[in-house]
Each structure stands twice: as structure tokens, then as C-alpha cells.
């Protein structure tokens, strides 16, 4: 929520923003056709996946102040729904993504409906438990390989020409851009003001006419669906999916760390945080072990929460004042 919006320079209209985003996607797509090295697409996919996850998390966590620790669960459910449907019916990727999003949206609806009446802490604890339980359930799901995991065959070429990884990259590009556009639209709409009111004082929000429960549940569904969509292409990206890789703790931590590092108040924060942190990790992966890498993310996150609670955007804005 940009406080100065109503008075100072008029903000870009929502339509204009969508157009710019579409143009950006087009430019990246055209540029991508020139790239022949698949590593670029592998690395880019990871960055975009985190942009998507961080943005999805922030719609609920940043705008409404409800902390979801269960990102890994939504993400993994998306991945496993996609694996199962692919094995069963062999559907095309866009359909798998929609299915993953739908199932995760439904789980968001159930979780939200049951726990969002309470103080936010209880919602958070429930999401944390959800992650652990889902892992137990999927470990028992033999159809998708259970504890042993399952191999997924990645086609060698994508439907647009170029490698399949390149296709996955464009898919993720589209999803991430879509998520950012949705987040910004939510932020600038009535819902954005309602969510900010909820975050600041829920009883006062109710008294001001905000249907807090409905808004929170709707936001949880949206956020969960986007996380599910983020997970759906994963099986094709990794080609071998097992519970430990799907329920990767790194995913859960990064998704929270990125918005907090970038700043949770606006759509740009999670994007900045995701790009920065995933590039740092990608770079560090070469030199240090993955455990040290994770430690780094954890420490950066704690550092930002304690010292710069409004993230990088907060620091920048503070400087400008």
C-alpha cells in the first residue's frame, strides 16, 4: 500500500500495468529465442519460480498479515497432483497447472475456513502442521512413488520449438508475471485497502464494514492456488520427484524470507527479494555447501526482520523521505 498514492503523482493504472507486464513478457520471450545455453533457462526458471512463490505468499502474508508456513505443502501438492494426472491421463502442462492450482485453492479454502476466525498465530501453526501432515500423506501415496519417489519423463522438445526446459521457463515466466499483475491489482483495489485494514486492526476493519472473514478466505484461496501452480511444472523440471525434494525446507524458508527481505507492503518487494536471494543462492551454490547456503538465507532473514522490518523497499523509502 503506497501511502502517498492518492495525493502525489497518480499511480500507473491497472490496465497500463498489465500492458507493460505483457510487453515485458514478450520481450523476454523474444530474447529467449536467441539463447542456446539451457543453463540460462534452468537458472531463470528457479528465479521465476521464487518470484511466483514469494508473490503468492505475500498476497496473504504481506497484505493481510497472515503468515503461511505451509508453502512447501501447497507447492508439493501442486507438484504431486501434476505428477499423478500426468501418469494417469498424460494431460498437457497448462491443464496440469490449472489442476494443481484448483486443488491447492480448495485446500486453502478448507484451511482458511477452519482457522482464519482465530488470531493469526493459530492459522500459522495450522499451516506449519499442514506441511508435516501432507508430507506424511504423500509418503504413503504409492501411486506417485511413495517414499521412493517417481521418475517423470521430460519431453526433449517443447511445443514452441526449443528445449522443453526453455518451454518450462516461458511457462514460469507467464505464471510469475500473471501473479505479479494479480498482486498489484489486488493491492490497488478495494480488496487491497480491506486487507491492509485487516492487517492493522481486524476489529476496526469489521467495524468499518470490511467482510474480514470472506476477504481472508478468498485471499488464502488465491495465494494457495498460485503456490499450487508454481509446483505443477516441478516434476518436469526435476524429472525425479520424491517427498524430500518436493517438501524442500529451502522452499518454505525462501518463500518467507524473500518478501520480508524485499518488503511486504507492495508487489515490488517480493519480486526484489526473490530475484536478489535466488541469485545470491545460485551464485553461492558454486562455492559453498547447500547447508551453509541455507544458513545464509536464514541469517539474512532474521537480520532483516529484526533490523529492517520493512525490507529493502522500506529502506529505500526511508532514504527518500
Amino acid at each position: 500500500m503506497t501511502g502517498d498514492a492518492p495525493l502525489s503523482r497518480p499511480p500507473m493504472g491497472t490496465l497500463a500495468f498489465w500492458c507493460w507486464a505483457a510487453a515485458f513478457t514478450g520481450v523476454v520471450y523474444l530474447a529467449g529465442r536467441w539463447v542456446t545455453n539451457d543453463y540460462v533457462f534452468f537458472a531463470g526458471y528457479i528465479v521465476l519460480q521464487y518470484v511466483l512463490l514469494a508473490t503468492a505468499w505475500n498476497i496473504l502474508g504481506g497484505y493481510a498479515g497472515y503468515v503461511n508456513f505451509g508453502t512447501a505443502a501447497f507447492f508439493a501438492i501442486g507438484a504431486y497432483i501434476s505428477t499423478a494426472l500426468n501418469k494417469w491421463l498424460g494431460l498437457p502442462l497448462p491443464v496440469l497447472i490449472l489442476a494443481g492450482a484448483a486443488v491447492c485453492g480448495l485446500i486453502g479454502l478448507l484451511m482458511g475456513g477452519l482457522t482464519l476466525k482465530l488470531q493469526g498465530v493459530f492459522f500459522s501453526i495450522a499451516t506449519l502442521a499442514l506441511a508435516i501432515v501432507t508430507q506424511a500423506l504423500i509418503t504413503n501415496w504409492e501411486y506417485v512413488g511413495g517414499a521412493a519417489g517417481a521418475y517423470v519423463i521430460r519431453p526433449s522438445r517443447g511445443p514452441l520449438g526449443g528445449s522443453y526446459v526453455e518451454y518450462l521457463f516461458y511457462t514460469m515466466l507467464l505464471l510469475a508475471t500473471l501473479a505479479v499483475c494479480i498482486a498489484r491489482t489486488v493491492e490497488r483495489s478495494a480488496a487491497g485497502y480491506g486487507l491492509a485494514a485487516i492487517r492493522d486492526d481486524e476489529a476496526a476493519a469489521e467495524a468499518a464494514g470490511v467482510p474480514t472473514m470472506k476477504l481472508k478466505v478468498a485471499t488464502t484461496v488465491l495465494s494457495g492456488a498460485l503456490m499450487g501452480a508454481a509446483g505443477a511444472p516441478l516434476p518436469f523440471f526435476v524429472t525425479y520427484l520424491d517427498p524430500p525434494s518436493a517438501f524442500n525446507l529451502a522452499v518454505a524458508v525462501n518463500t518467507i524470507a524473500m518478501p520480508l527481505v524485499g518488503g511486504t507492503a507492495t508487489w515490488i518487494g517480493p519480486v526484489i527479494g526473490a530475484v536478489l536471494l535466488s541469485i545470491v543462492q545460485e551464485a553461492a551454490m558454486v562455492t559453498i555447501s547447500s547447508a551453509v547456503n541455507l544458513l545464509l538465507v536464514g541469517l539474512i532473514m532474521i537480520g532483516f526482520i529484526t533490523l529492517a522490518p520493512n525490507g529493502i523497499m522500506g529502506l529505500l523509502r526511508g532514504r527518500r523521505r
Binding site: P6, A197, A204
Partner: peptide, 25 residues
Amino acid sequence: RSFQLPRPFGSLTVAENLRVPLLYA
């Protein structure tokens, strides 16, 4: 109703504080 101890929306500006009921109520 107004609250006895003021409960403004802290992250919104004063104008935006009024915008919430204007949009919703």
C-alpha cells in the same frame, strides 16, 4: 461506532483510513 481508544489503521494514511469505510460500508 467509534472506538473509545482510537484504533486507526496504522499503515494507511489518514485519508486512506476513511477510504476503507467509504469503499466497504
